[in-house]
Design a protein around this nucleic acid. Structure first.
Lengths: 293, 293
DNA sequence: CCATTTAATGAATCGTTAG
DNA sequence: TCTAACGATTCATTAAATG
């Protein structure tokens, strides 16, 4: 039996994070309140104050993350008064100064972006997914996110229904437990750093702008079953829900009791699974790093 | 008759630019040598020196650009030793300090990106197309780059479900485009700030990494016939060739005589066209700005 | 002459070897 | 202990070759 914990913590993550153990998290994936957005829920941080506001939090994130762990930050600067703000650029520079490595910038191409029309710009159809690490030797399971090779897009147009069924099946039995290497050799290719995902429109109470596939992709890429995922700005809990479904321990923090309640109803605090053939507690390649950092 | 000039200037653009008139350019679109790239052709600028190297050039660009003109900068930071360099971020901040407005960041999604496999990252499939302006009132002809809605819908069909399709229709009917000319009303939609283009594989002598569609798109978007386009790092001249074909005046600068020769063979210095029905010298909406700035 | 296969080639990045 | 140079890896596209 393996035991998966899902912890939901109420409070300001700057404070709550201090209660977490050092080097205990394998993956942080979060979408913090953008500057001046979500004023009614979060404070609504002024762009000029954004870096200053974020650094104390990221300092705690740096502490709780394992040396071979990864921090994925979903963010996009707003346009205001005809210009893009620069606080995200400044944040990247500041995080590096704080000790983070800026490893990569993935692009999330939002296929169905927010509608609108302006005389001076087009609709914004992409967001940044910034990857930060503590060390250069981080865990990365690239095979887990391999995609059907080449012109799968063309094929899908021709046989739309067929392929969609296949894709659905792949989703449901999402690859774990089976020995993948057999059937994916020349059928699949590694993805790039551009992710094409549609936002999910939730007509429910709280809109989940974050599509489930996004945390799912990064959780597959950077963690194994039994690892621990953290989202310090949980919101409606997409990351936490997906993590639990994928048999990862997870910790979600939010300042609003409302969100804690919502996610509580979508998850269970403890779950048990039968151990599969290949033990989940695999030898960690980079264990040595933990002591260094 | 209208007369279109195509000037090719040999030399270091930092010096050559000084010979150009102030406020004489409608669109600058260029792809400068990236840091540490093209060592054999250009010098190969060190990442640490990149901003310092670029600023004197961009100062001249700021001078020659019209107040209602636009500057499109194609660039991407390299990854080295496990980390992305930050010189592009620093360049954006420095350009703003120099007086430029950072209006937008388009994403060029390179469908056929460079191959390769590494333990710590995927292939890099995107580049930045940074838009800078002198003033907030710049020319932008959005209707010129509208895309057939069919393609758009097709593209979306690939990844979206029924609910999303319905939402699409709601979007399309949502108001804009009434004053636009008749033939594009329900056939076309505005694009977003993500461009999907493949690099052109030139097996010829000199590779044009820049696909023709890229300058074409921006020339349509930011200029009219008879306007002037500048590329201070001309290279094999994709921008210049496209500009001439689109009946725009153009100025190309390059430090290598070789490139000047190549582009000379692909263009003619002066071309004449019959004036079409709707005069090309349309009233400029933002003419007033010229005086202000 | 068209449909299909094969070959060549990049604005890449990392690890290793040489100076 | 550095930096510089080279090989290995990889895939979408185009050109050339094949049937």
């Amino acid at each position: 039996m393996i035991k998966i914990n899902t912890k939901l913590l109420l409070g300001d993550c700057k404070e709550i994070l201090k209660t977490l153990d050092s080097n205990s998290i394998d993956l942080i994936i979060t979408s913090p309140p953008y500057a001046d957005r979500r004023k009614h829920t979060y404070g609504g941080i002024k762009p000029e104050k954004y870096v200053e506001w974020f650094l104390p939090i990221s300092e705690e994130l740096l502490r709780v993350l394992r040396a071979d762990g990864t921090f994925i930050l979903n963010i996009k600067e707003k346009a205001e008064n005809g210009e893009r703000h620069t606080y995200v650029l400044e944040l990247i520079l500041a995080l590096r100064k704080q000790g983070w490595l800026w490893t990569e910038e993935f692009i999330w191409h939002k296929k169905n972006c927010y509608p609108g029309k302006w005389p001076n710009r087009f609709r914004d159809a992409w967001e940044r997914l910034l990857q930060f690490n503590k060390t250069k030797k981080f865990k990365m399971y690239q095979e887990e996110v391999m995609v059907p090779i080449g012109d799968w897009a063309k094929d899908r147009l021709k046989h739309l229904n067929e392929v969609d069924k296949i894709r659905d099946n792949a989703k449901n039995g999402s690859g774990f437990g089976k020995n993948v290497s057999n059937w994916l050799n020349r059928e699949k290719a590694y993805p790039t750093n551009v992710l094409h995902l549609a936002t999910e429109c939730n007509n429910k109470n709280h809109s989940a702008v974050f599509p489930e596939d996004l945390p799912k992709w990064f959780i597959k890429l950077f963690t194994k079953e039994g690892d621990t995922v953290l989202d310090p700005f949980m919101g409606s809990g997409t990351t936490i829900v997906v993590a639990q479904r994928m048999k990862r321990n997870s910790i979600g923090i939010d300042i609003l009791p409302e969100y804690i309640e919502i996610v509580k109803n979508k998850t269970s605090p403890v779950q048990y699974y039968l151990v599969e053939e290949k033990g989940i507690y695999e030898t960690n390649k980079y264990k040595g790093c933990t002591k260094i950092c």
